[in-house]
Design a protein around this nucleic acid. Structure first.
Lengths: 112, 112
DNA sequence: TTTCGTTATATTTGTAAAGACATAACGAAA
DNA sequence: TTTCGTTATGTCTTTACAAATATAACGAAA
């Protein structure tokens, strides 16, 4: 049969997107590199796009997801808060569970 | 807390989208009205957009989802095959189950 | 064989999102 | 107080996608 069920999940807060796959990817890259600009380069997106995404995340979240610092010798940087780290862990787990759930549902299509 | 988990699911066949929410909505409107042009009007989308969607659906599906007829007194029309009707029923059920599943997962976010 | 409301298809136009580019602001360390 | 690599922000350009417009093809019934 070879039909496949695909899905996208995201978390909203007050009608605004808090987390989706792209945002989680960005947060992981920030965690790995220690800065927003390096994360943008790693993901091959413009700094501006990355900044807009991160700004949107922090504006939608109930608590700060990253701590951003400007200036200083190295120029500053960005790092995830414990809250941010917990969020991406939870998102990943839910996403994985969703895939498994949908895989099981596929047989309903295959029976047709 | 008021975070919400949202989702979009779709069925692919060989890398092409077969069914998503918009396509299911269109197929339902065809079933109700008996024609593609009437369905497009009901959904307030252009006939061309509707035709492209339906064409894509029928090209991706293993068996015809609609039977389209040109010409004749009334001008022809379109109607769902039994296969098409079964597909949208299955899609709706899976989608509903997915929502319920994700609602349960939400507590993992709220615990943070 | 004319009429009619469809399906089918091409072409042009408009618009919103993405991308490119430029630059100001910052502040710890040297 | 100068330097440096960041964060922060504005503006212009491009591009992809949606929308609008136009028209051909069809064929059963009158």
């Amino acid at each position: 049969m070879s039909y496949k069920i695909k899905s996208r999940i995201w978390i909203e807060s007050d009608k605004h997107v808090l987390l989706g796959e792209g945002r989680v990817q960005l947060l992981k890259a920030i965690d790995k590199t220690g800065s927003l600009s390096k994360a943008a380069k790693a993901l091959n997106i413009s700094y501006k796009k990355a900044w807009n995404l991160l700004d949107s995340v922090n504006k939608s979240a109930k608590k700060p997801v990253t701590i951003n610092s400007i200036g200083g010798k190295g120029g500053g940087g960005a790092e995830l808060t414990d809250y941010g780290k917990s969020l991406i862990l939870a998102f990943d787990e839910i996403n994985k569970n969703c895939w498994e759930f949908l895989d099981k549902q596929l047989e309903k299509i295959e029976r047709i």
